[in-house]
Design a binder for these strands. Structure first.
Lengths: 63, 63
DNA sequence: TCACTATGTAAAGGGTGTTTGACAATGATT
DNA sequence: AATCATTGTCAAACACCCTTTACATAGTGA
């Protein structure tokens, strides 16, 4: 799975920590998802989509 | 998270095994997701959405 | 009744997601 | 030069996802 987190975050000038705070996860989780180390859980994917006011499919794609 | 898996599956007259085969997971995984024991991983949620030709948001909701 | 299908559930084990704490490297500011 | 914010990464620990194997129950049809 690929994702557009890094771009979306940059567009808003948020640090990884800023996004982590909004998502209520650790900064390391945000970093790991951005750098492709693993995919978020489904509930977290929903929170991410909410945070960026987009659908999950607009943020994540199957490679 | 809630999901409409059981209804969508019934609409197509698929057994849990039928759906599991299409998703390439075990029948127990389908059952566990349907009965709310846990949420699928994000990649599996994508396969589920594809299988039913719907968006993830149309199938899963945050309670 | 006997077989067969479908569903729910349980236990054990491997793999993944998330956490905290820590350290290093870079770039900007003072 | 020293500080600070940001990012990347690592390790250990714990919870969750998914597997296989297995057993129990209920419904269907020969």
């Amino acid at each position: 799975m690929k994702n557009r987190l890094k771009v979306l975050r940059a567009e808003r000038s948020w640090s990884q920590q800023d996004l982590a705070d909004r998502l209520e996860v650790s900064r390391q989780s945000v970093n790991a998802i951005e750098t492709g180390k693993y995919d978020p859980s489904l509930p977290l994917a929903f929170r991410i989509a909410e945070t960026f006011d987009m659908s999950i499919e607009e943020i994540f794609t199957k490679d």
